[in-house]
Computed example of a mutant assay.
Amino acid sequence: MKKTIQITIVLLFSSLAIFGQTKETKQADIYFENLSFVKAALEYKKLAEKKPTAYILKKLGDCYYNNVQMEEAADAYARLFTAFVDFDDEDYAFKYAQSLRAIGNFEESKFWMKKFNTVKKEDVRGQNFTEAKAILAEIRDNKPDYRVENLEKINTKYSDFGVTEYKNTILFSSPRDLNRFVKRTHTRNNRNFLDIFQVNKDDIKLKGSKKLFLKN
């Protein structure tokens, strides 16, 4: 009898894990499970326009959230919490708060982060946010002892990051288009794979000064 109860509990949790999946979401779910978030988002978006269930809106928001498309993620989560007022999932309250914060909606973000912290008091993510002494206005008013400058000759519309000094050069990674004959894109975000670029410190403001760190 005890073994039967244990099996029943396992089956119950298994069904809860996939609750919300339907025949209509099957293709989108496959894309999502394979981390092909761009394709998954397109499918969930179509479904959300027809029948925006809580499951579909959650997945749609997660596609954008996982690809750091925070404005789109915030919109999807807003639809989720607006359409389903009884929806109660603290993890999504956290994601919504983070999305709002990323697009500069600090007051609304604070509301949802406090809601998350009320439910999960032991979670350090909520603690760090609610106990933070720094106020945005104070940070903004402080005069920094440095100047931020956009290196327009190096920066592109792509994600250029991971800056490292190497001898008298600067190394950084970027998924920029190299006009290769064979295009290689990641299924997660449909962007090019990363390459490492190198630029001499003395030429950092010169156009065309960047080159691949290794040709192969």
Rank of each mutant, 00 (worst) to 15 (best):
A28F: 05
A28C: 03
A28G: 00
D29V: 06
D29E: 07
I30W: 12
I30L: 13
Y31N: 05
F32E: 04
F32V: 06
N34Y: 08
L35W: 05
S36I: 01
S36N: 02
A40N: 00
A40Q: 02
A41V: 07
E43S: 06
E43Q: 09
Y44V: 10
L47G: 00
E49H: 11
K51R: 15
P52A: 02
L57W: 02
K59P: 12
L60H: 13
L60A: 15
D62L: 11
C63W: 13
C63I: 13
Y65K: 05
Y65Q: 05
Y65P: 04
N67I: 01
N67V: 11
N67A: 00
N67W: 02
V68I: 02
M70E: 07
E71H: 00
A73S: 10
D75C: 02
D75T: 08
A76P: 10
A76Y: 06
A76K: 06
Y77N: 01
Y77D: 03
Y77T: 11
A78Q: 07
A78I: 03
A78L: 13
R79M: 08
F81G: 12
F81Y: 04
T82V: 08
F84Y: 15
V85W: 15
V85A: 15
D86S: 15
D86M: 15
D86Y: 12
F87D: 10
E90I: 09
E90D: 09
E90A: 12
D91T: 08
D91G: 14
D91A: 13
Y92V: 08
Y92A: 05
A93Q: 08
F94C: 04
Y96G: 03
A97P: 13
S99T: 06
S99H: 06
L100E: 03
R101W: 14
A102H: 00
A102S: 10
G104C: 05
G104V: 11
F106R: 08
E107N: 10
E107I: 10
S109V: 01
S109L: 09
K110I: 07
F111T: 10
M113I: 02
M113Y: 05
K120I: 01
E122V: 06
E122L: 10
V124F: 01
R125E: 03
N128Q: 08
F129G: 06
F129W: 07
T130Q: 13
T130K: 04
E131Q: 09
E131F: 04
A132Q: 14
A134Y: 12
A134P: 12
A137M: 15
A137L: 14
E138S: 09
E138W: 00
R140D: 09
D141L: 02
D141P: 01
D141S: 04
K143W: 03
K143I: 00
P144E: 07
P144M: 09
